[in-house]
């Protein structure tokens, strides 16, 4: 038996292929899959949310609240905002929640509605508002989310999706981590329709509380001057663009014959004591 040294012309064990193309095809497929799952989950959550009792929500709310870290800052203003919220609830928006305001030290101009009636208000927002009516509108807006239970819809999807992705790829896989981050970004925000509905709820509420709607659009009118809405992060990214939002509010004010009148100033003693 003799040996004939020879080399094969081609490498049979490696498929000649473009990995880059495969990557884009598969990533596109995965994206399609996620969108499909997301839509399906949306339907499921919408069906489920009306059946979640307030009691159960309060229990879940504790976990959500604990996941937002930070200390309660500024007890004076917190007390004031809390009493404003309680007043609104008692007189005009009868919601089956016990709202608890948490003021958090952050420059973000933002407020968050968490399950269980925990409303987080950042000091950045408190520094921006200039009248009680304006602040009341923002609070009533958050109450609007509770009235329509948007916070559960948003949170519900996030929770179910994260569970799903962990199941699919394993909790610690790199794909899952990246997916988790991208999902978080989209999940923290409400849809435009939900925001518009909350705006309408807020308008009704402050009209009931003050007898007029003065100051309702003040907050949104400030925003474009301060900062580009795109840079604001999730709150304003999904809140309808301010121009559109203001004109929508003004339309309602006109058609319902609401009375835009003088604003009530914020309590000087509390607001001016801040360094």
């Amino acid at each position: 038996m003799k040996y004939t040294p020879r080399q094969p012309e081609s490498n049979v064990n490696v498929t000649p292929t473009s990995h880059l193309r495969e990557f884009f095809v598969l990533a596109g497929g995965l994206l399609g899959l996620i969108v499909a799952v997301y839509l399906m989950l949306g339907l499921a959550v919408d069906l489920m949310v009306p059946h979640i009792s307030i009691d159960l929500e309060n229990k879940i709310g504790v976990h959500f609240f604990q996941s937002v870290d930070g200390k309660d800052a500024d007890p004076q203003r917190e007390y004031y905002v809390q009493s404003l919220m309680d007043d609104l609830q008692e007189r005009c928006a009868k919601l089956p929640y016990r709202f608890k305001i948490h003021v958090r030290e952050a420059s973000t101009v933002n407020a968050m509605a968490l399950p269980g009636g925990h409303v987080i208000v950042f000091t950045g927002l408190l520094d921006k508002v200039s009248s009680e009516n304006e602040l009341a509108f923002v609070l009533a807006h958050e109450m609007g989310h509770y009235a329509h239970r948007d916070h559960l819809r948003a949170g519900g999807r996030a929770v179910v999706l994260m569970t799903f992705s962990a199941l699919l790829f394993g909790a610690d896989s790199s794909v899952s981590t990246v997916l988790g981050h991208t999902l978080n970004i989209t999940e923290l925000s409400f849809s435009r329709k939900q925001e518009t509905q909350a705006d309408e709820f807020a308008l009704e509420t402050i009209n009931c509380a003050y007898g007029h709607v003065g100051g309702a659009t003040d907050f949104f009118e400030k925003i474009p001057k301060e900062q580009d809405p795109g840079k604001f992060g999730h709150y304003f990214a999904s809140h309808p663009e301010n121009r559109r939002r203001i004109s929508h509010l003004n339309n309602i004010i006109r058609s319902r014959g609401f009375n835009p009148a003088k604003r009530k100033p914020l309590p000087e003693a509390i607001w001016n004591s801040i360094p």
């Binding site: 064990n13 490696v14 498929t15 292929t17 990995h19 495969e22 990557f23 598969l26 990533a27 497929g29 995965l30 899959l33 699919l168 790829f169 896989s173 790199s174 794909v175």
Partner: peptide, 19 residues
């Protein structure tokens, strides 16, 4: 290639990136 293989793992088929 690791990420590509991870994607391939979802859809199944030949894992060309590991060949």
């Amino acid at each position: 290639k690791k990420i590509l293989a991870g994607l391939r793992n979802i859809f199944g088929g030949t894992v060309k990136s590991y060949e």
